[in-house]
Design a binder for these strands. Sequence first.
DNA 1: ATGTGACTTAGAGTCCGTT
DNA 2: AAACGGACTCTAAGTCACA
Lengths: 77, 77
Amino acid sequence: MKRSNRQSESARARFARNLKTLRIQLGLSQEALAANAGLHRTYIGSIERAERNVSIDNMEHLATALNVDIIDLLRVQ
Amino acid sequence: MKRSNRQSESARARFARNLKTLRIQLGLSQEALAANAGLHRTYIGSIERAERNVSIDNMEHLATALNVDIIDLLRVQ
DNA sequence: ATGTGACTTAGAGTCCGTT
DNA sequence: AAACGGACTCTAAGTCACA
């Protein structure tokens, strides 16, 4: 998908993509991130595939575990 | 609360406050916003009181109904 | 180390009302 | 117009076995 078309992408899909990008940038496995965020390994995978409708509390837990602001996980990058 | 201390505020609380601020700026009632966002009147009130753990899909619906980006509802302002 | 289907349960979200 | 409560229904949260 072109960057210029990403504006219409759902927030869920953006969150999924950014979460995975940031996790990999930090060299973390889904399992390691799950541990840091206090969530389950398979749940992280499911979020990254944009299958889950994540809540704001878990979004914040994930942002904290990745050491970023929650906004960074929603921004188009 | 001082602006300088708001960084430690939860994302849920920020979302609640910004939602209410933007809704009032547009001169909408909770009922009218609920209709626009396809949600229930009492649920909007509950979110604005930061009692609910809103999902990303509904956050986006609310942002759309307020004609802003979802990020604007999470940013400290 | 991750994807996936299936599952249980906590809580999201609705609908009725009263204050 | 909004807060709040009770009683719902539906879905996100959270886990597991296995590929």
